[in-house]
C-alpha cells in the first residue's frame, strides 16, 4: 500500500491514509522507527525504477560527468584561466584541447572553470529558490486565511516582476561581482511558481485524515509540515529542485552573456560574452564559443531529460515498463 503513497499528491488518495496513520498515531518515541520503514521502502522502490529508466540514468551520467570534469580537471593546471599562456587564437591542438582565445588563454581551462561556476550557481540559486518557494508554499497552504492571502500577494508580485530588468538595475546599483551573489539574486526571483504549486498541493493534503490525526495528537504546525505533508510530496519537491537548478544555470548564462556576470571568475556565459565581444564569430574562432554553448545545452538538457525520467519513476501511471 505504500506504493501508492508517491501518487498521493496527484489523487484524492483515499488509501494513502493507511500509510500515514502508522506514523503520527504511535507515541513520539516509536514514531521515527515506524515512519522510517515505509520511507526507506519508498526510496528503495524509487531507486529500483530509477536505475531501470534510461532517461534518468542517461541524464544522470551526463550531469555527473560534467560535474566530475569541472571538479577535477582544473586541479591539473598550474596556471589560471585568465592567464595568457599559449599562442594567440590558435585552434584546438594536443596541447590546448579547445584551442586558445584572442589573448592566448586556454579555452579548455576556462571551460572547466566555467562548469564549476555553472554547478555552483545552479546549486545555490536553485537551492535558495526551492527553500523560499517551499517555505512560502507550505506556510501559505497549511496556515491559510490571512497569512495565505498575504503570502499569495507577495508571490504574485514577484511572479509578475520582470526579473531580467530588475536584475539589470540591481547590477548597476549594487554590482553583482561574485557567483554566490549572482545566485542569491537569481534565487530571490525564481521561486514564485514553486510557492504556488506547493501551496496548492498543501491545500489538498492538509484536509486529509492523517493530517487531522497528527493535529489531534498535538503536533505543532512546523512538525506536521515537515513530517506529514512534505514527505508525501517529496518526489515532486525533488523534481522541482532539478528544474530550479536548470533554470538558475540558464538565467546565470543569460546574465553573463549580456555582460552582467561576476568579475574575477569564469563562467560559460562569460566565455560566450567574451567570444562575441572579441568577434570570435566573424574571425572564425569557433572553438571559443561552441564549447560553452554546447556545455550549457548539454547540462540543462540532461537535467530536463532526467526530470522527465523521474516523473515516470515516481508516477506509476507514466511508467513504460
Amino acid at each position: 500500500m505504500s506504493d501508492l503513497a508517491p501518487a498521493a499528491r496527484e489523487e484524492a488518495a483515499p488509501a494513502a491514509g493507511g500509510e500515514a496513520v502508522s506514523a503520527p498515531a504511535v507515541p513520539v518515541a516509536a514514531g521515527p522507527v515506524a515512519a522510517a520503514q515505509p520511507g526507506a521502502r519508498r526510496t528503495r522502490d524509487a531507486l529500483h525504477f530509477a536505475l531501470r529508466n534510461k532517461k534518468v540514468v542517461g541524464g544522470g551520467i551526463v550531469v555527473l560527468a560534467f560535474l566530475a570534469l569541472g571538479l577535477i580537471a582544473p586541479l591539473f593546471y598550474d596556471y589560471g584561466h585568465s592567464e595568457y599562456v599559449g599562442p594567440q587564437s590558435s585552434g584546438p591542438s594536443g596541447e590546448y584541447w579547445f584551442g586558445t582565445t584572442t589573448f592566448g588563454q586556454d579555452v579548455f581551462l576556462q571551460f572547466v572553470h566555467g562548469i564549476r561556476s555553472t554547478f555552483l550557481v545552479g546549486l545555490l540559486g536553485g537551492g535558495l529558490a526551492a527553500l523560499i518557494g517551499m517555505t512560502i508554499g507550505f506556510v501559505a497552504g497549511y496556515v491559510g486565511g490571512l497569512v495565505d492571502e498575504a503570502l499569495n500577494m507577495l508571490t504574485n508580485i514577484v511572479l509578475v516582476l520582470p526579473a531580467l530588468a530588475v536584475l539589470i538595475i540591481l547590477h548597476t546599483y549594487i554590482g553583482i561581482t561574485s557567483v554566490p551573489s549572482q545566485a542569491l539574486f537569481i534565487g530571490i526571483f525564481s521561486w514564485p511558481w514553486v510557492a504556488r504549486a506547493v501551496r496548492a498541493q498543501t491545500f489538498s493534503l492538509r484536509t486529509r485524515d492523517f493530517v487531522d490525526l497528527a493535529r489531534l495528537s498535538g503536533m505543532g504546525s512546523g512538525a506536521i509540515i515537515r513530517r506529514e505533508i512534505a514527505p508525501n510530496m517529496s518526489s515532486y519537491l525533488f523534481m522541482t529542485f532539478i528544474l530550479l537548478f536548470g533554470g538558475s544555470v540558464l538565467f546565470a548564462a543569460t546574465l553573463d552573456f549580456i555582460g552582467l556576470g561576476p568579475t574575477g571568475v569564469m563562467s560559460l556565459g562569460l566565455m560566450m560574452n567574451n567570444a562575441v565581444h572579441w568577434s570570435a564569430l566573424q574571425l572564425g574562432l569557433w572553438w571559443w564559443f561552441l564549447p560553452p554553448g554546447l556545455g550549457i545545452t548539454a547540462i540543462v538538457g540532461a537535467l530536463y531529460i532526467m526530470n522527465v525520467g523521474l516523473d515516470e519513476v515516481f508516477n506509476p501511471k507514466l511508467r513504460e515498463m
Binding site: 536548470g246 540558464l250 526530470n307 516523473d311
Partner: peptide, 22 residues
C-alpha cells in the same frame, strides 16, 4: 504537471534565444 513543463519550455526558449544572439 503542466507548469514545470511550461517553465522548462520557456527556459529552453531562453537558451535558444541566447545562442541565437551570437
Amino acid at each position: 504537471r503542466t507548469r514545470p513543463r511550461y517553465i522548462a519550455a520557456l527556459f529552453t526558449a531562453v537558451l535558444l534565444a541566447t545562442t541565437a544572439c551570437e
